[in-house]
C-alpha cells in the first residue's frame, strides 16, 4: 500500500479552480517532483499536503490515516520554503531546535539532535550565527536542517533552490538528494526547473492548469512525452502539426509529432543513406558543449543539436545537409 495517497483533490479560490481532480500515490522513501510553470497548481497541492490550505474536496492520506482536515501542527510533515522562512530573532541552533522545543523535548536531547543535523548539512561553526549573517545557501541548509531534525513523515520542498545562484543550486540539490537517500525520507519537491526535476527525482508529475499532464519516471517523462504541453515544457522538442508531419515525413497523425533535437542526425549532403531528408542550415547557436542548428526541410524548420567536439564541426548557414530521423525517436503526442 502506498505511503501517501491523494484522491480526487480539488481546490477552488472563489470562481477559479486551481487544482482539478488531482490523484497520486507515493511509496515510502520515494523522491517525487511536481514540475510545471508558475500558476499550474503545484504549490497549492503542496500546501494542501502541509495543511496550509484546505481542499475544496478530496482526501489526503498518510500511512492509511486521513489527514485532510488535520491542523499543520499535528501532521508531522516538514516543509522547506523558497524564502527560507528562518526566524530572524533566533540563531542557527535556536532555529533548528525550535521544532524539538515545541515537541517538549528535553534540553540534552535537543542539543544532541541539533548537533547531529548541523553536521549532516555541513554547517558546523555557524551554530551561533543569525540568519542575516548567513549566505543564501547556508540559510537554506539551516531551513533544511530545521525541517529534518523533527524527523518528519514527509518532507516538502517548495522551490527551495530558486532564490540561489547556479553554482550553489547545483551543490545544494546534490546535497538534498544525498541526505534524502541516506535518511530514506519520503520527499515531495516542487520546481519549475526541468533540469532540477530530472536530476533529483525518482518520479515526476508534470502539471498544467491544475491537472497532472503526465506522471512517470524522470527518464520516461523526458523521452516519452504524452502531451504537446509536456513536450514543450520538458525540452526543446520539435513539435510538428499534422500538416507539417505529412509534408516532412509522409505520416498521417491527429495530434502533434514530437522529435527531440538530439535525435536528428545530420549527414553530409552527398550521403547515400536511405530514408534521409534534404535540408539547409538557416542558422546556428553555440551553447557550449552543443551546437544548436535551425535546419529547413520541406518548408519545416527543425531544431537540431549536435555535439561541439572540434571547431571544424561547425557548419555555416546555407550548408546543404541530409537529415536522418529514426521512427523510434518520433513520438505522437495529444
Amino acid at each position: 500500500m502506498a505511503y501517501l495517497t491523494i484522491n480526487n483533490l480539488h481546490k477552488r479560490f472563489d470562481d477559479h479552480v486551481v487544482v482539478h481532480d488531482f490523484n497520486m500515490s507515493i511509496e515510502q522513501g520515494e523522491f517525487v517532483t511536481f514540475l510545471g510553470p508558475s500558476g499550474c497548481g503545484k504549490t497549492t497541492v503542496l500546501r494542501m499536503i502541509a495543511g496550509f490550505e484546505t481542499p475544496t474536496s478530496g482526501h489526503i492520506r498518510v500511512g492509511g490515516e486521513d489527514i485532510t482536515h488535520q491542523s499543520p501542527q499535528k501532521r508531522g510533515i516538514g516543509m522547506v520554503f523558497q524564502s527560507y522562512a528562518l526566524f530572524p530573532n533566533m540563531n542557527v541552533t535556536q532555529n533548528i531546535g525550535f521544532g524539538l522545543k515545541m515537541r517538549k523535548c528535553d534540553g540534552a536531547e535537543i542539543a544532541r539532535k541539533v548537533a547531529e543535523v548541523i553536521k549532516l548539512v555541513e554547517l558546523s561553526g555557524k551554530e551561533n550565527h543569525y540568519p542575516h549573517e548567513l549566505s543564501g545557501g547556508q540559510r537554506q541548509r539551516v531551513a533544511l536542517a530545521r525541517a529534518l531534525v523533527v524527523e518528519p513523515r514527509i518532507l516538502l520542498l517548495d522551490e527551495p533552490l530558486s532564490a540561489l545562484d547556479a553554482r550553489i543550486r547545483k551543490n545544494l540539490r546534490e546535497q538534498i538528494r544525498d541526505i534524502q537517500r541516506r535518511l530514506g525520507l519520503t520527499t515531495i519537491f516542487v520546481t519549475h526547473d526541468q533540469e532540477e526535476a530530472l536530476t533529483m527525482s525518482d518520479r515526476i508529475f508534470v502539471m498544467n492548469q491544475g491537472r497532472v499532464e503526465q506522471e512517470g519516471r524522470a527518464e520516461m517523462v523526458y523521452t516519452e512525452p504524452a502531451t504537446e504541453f509536456v513536450a514543450r515544457f520538458m525540452g526543446n522538442y520539435n513539435l510538428l502539426g499534422a500538416a507539417e508531419t505529412q509534408r516532412l515525413l509522409g505520416l498521417n497523425i491527429n495530434g502533434h509529432m514530437a522529435i527531440r533535437p538530439e535525435s536528428i542526425h545530420v549527414l553530409d549532403a552527398h550521403s547515400q543513406q536511405a530514408d534521409t531528408l534534404a535540408g539547409t542550415i538557416r542558422q546556428h547557436q553555440l551553447l557550449g558543449n552543443i551546437i544548436r542548428y535551425q535546419i529547413e526541410s520541406a518548408g519545416v524548420t527543425l531544431q537540431v543539436d549536435r555535439l561541439n567536439r572540434t571547431a571544424s564541426d561547425l557548419m555555416p548557414a546555407g550548408t546543404e545537409v541530409r537529415l536522418q530521423i529514426s521512427r523510434d525517436d518520433m513520438r505522437e503526442v495529444r
Binding site: G51, Q73, A85, L86, F87, P88, G99, M102, A143, A147
Partner: peptide, 16 residues
C-alpha cells in the same frame, strides 16, 4: 517581516 511564511514555518514545526 514575512508574517505568513514565518507562521506557516512555525506551524509545520508543531508550534501552537
Amino acid at each position: 517581516i514575512d508574517v505568513r511564511t514565518l507562521t506557516e514555518a512555525a506551524e509545520s514545526l508543531g508550534a501552537s
